[in-house]
């Protein structure tokens, strides 16, 4: 049986196959997975915010999109991954609450900013984002399986998605 790792807020977990990486109850947060199918390694980050713009010392690299992506890559390479083979999948970044006239630019839209920042970081590092299920206004739980490199996305009241 594959071991199951719960990736909490702001955390990064990197592991070798066979493993299941999960993040539960993602709202505005993003569950980002980067993996190498040949080296059979995968890592998940539970991203909370787009960027560490305050320049403060980062205690949890998984907290920000701009620190999580390079850290994930670094840890995957340390586990034997090849940078040119890395691929990414992600889910999350919802906007849970909407208030008329208070949405654009406010913290309620943090999910959208997480998505944009993560996409930008992946493209900066040349990592293809092969599948994603992001945005909307519903929370998600994600499970990533190294058996088939599939991310299972669960939303309350909807059918399970496999991406």
């Amino acid at each position: 049986m594959a071991e199951v790792y719960h990736v909490g807020m702001g955390e990064i977990v990197v592991a070798k196959h066979p493993v299941i990486l999960t993040s539960l109850g993602l709202g505005s947060c993003l569950g980002l997975v980067i993996y190498d199918e040949i080296a059979k390694v995968a890592g998940m980050s539970h991203i909370m915010l787009p960027e560490n713009h305050e320049g403060r010392e980062v205690k949890k690299f998984g907290k920000y999109a701009d620190t999580a992506v390079p850290k994930l890559i670094e840890e995957l390479i340390a586990l034997g991954a090849l940078k040119s083979r890395l691929k990414a999948k992600m889910a999350g970044g919802a906007q849970m609450f909407s208030i008329p006239g208070k949405n654009s630019g406010s913290f309620l839209a943090i999910g959208e900013r997480n998505i944009e920042a993560t996409k930008k970081m992946l493209s900066n590092f040349g990592i293809p984002l092969v599948a994603y299920d992001v945005g909307g206004n519903k929370g998600r739980s994600v499970e990533f399986y190294t058996d088939n490199w599939i991310m299972v996305v669960k939303v309350i009241g909807s059918e399970v998605k496999k991406i």
């Binding site: 807020m9 709202g27 909370m48 309620l108 309350i156």
Partner: peptide, 20 residues
């Protein structure tokens, strides 16, 4: 505003908010 959803997804927003 009202939502029906996973508790974690709702509290996420607060974590991110103070996390800034």
């Amino acid at each position: 505003a009202i939502v029906h959803d996973m508790l974690g997804a709702i509290l996420d927003l607060l974590a991110a908010y103070y996390g800034m």
